[in-house]
């Protein structure tokens, strides 16, 4: 049996078009060996969840800077449950105040990265959370 790389879907949810962060992260994850599926701007939670299921990803990374995180993240979590796909890990990044980070964690969002997080911290997180067996190949 072959190994497969970690597959992560990255998405911009909501209406804001600030894709600098999601692109930098997508590129860094690719360079670290992840197969990144980028779904682009202005995605709805339903589009993201459906794409994640079709792409059979291990995790969803959501970037969101518009302030709507307390509406959109819970919707993603709800839809994943509805599709019996709770095993897909959700993490995110954006302008999220600390009390909201706690609230999102309580909802099952695995990790929330706030401004100033280094790329390395995110790559390390993905490695820790998703990459276990067979690391070091290549």
């Amino acid at each position: 049996m072959g190994r497969r790389p970690v597959r992560i879907l990255t998405a911009k949810v909501g209406l804001d078009g600030h894709d600098r962060g999601v692109k930098v992260i997508s590129r860094a994850l690719r360079d670290a060996g992840v197969e990144v599926i980028y779904t682009g701007l202005h995605q709805t939670p339903a589009q993201v969840v459906e794409a994640a299921i079709q792409e059979d990803v291990d995790g969803i990374g959501i970037s969101l800077l518009s302030g709507a995180h307390m509406t959109l993240f819970p919707e993603v979590m709800r839809l994943l449950r509805e599709r019996h796909a709770e095993d897909i890990v959700v993490f995110g990044g954006g302008i999220v105040p600390p009390q909201d980070v706690e609230a999102l964690r309580a909802l099952g969002v695995d990790e929330v990265f706030t401004p100033g997080t280094s790329i390395q911290a995110i790559v390390e997180y993905v490695d820790r959370r998703f990459g276990h067996v067979g690391a070091g190949a290549g």
Partner: peptide, 18 residues
């Protein structure tokens, strides 16, 4: 706000939460 910038009314579902 974002919905206004994107030409969406406040009750448009794509602007939910924004």
């Amino acid at each position: 706000d974002m919905p206004t910038l994107m030409g969406r009314d406040s009750d448009d579902p794509v602007g939910l939460g924004e």
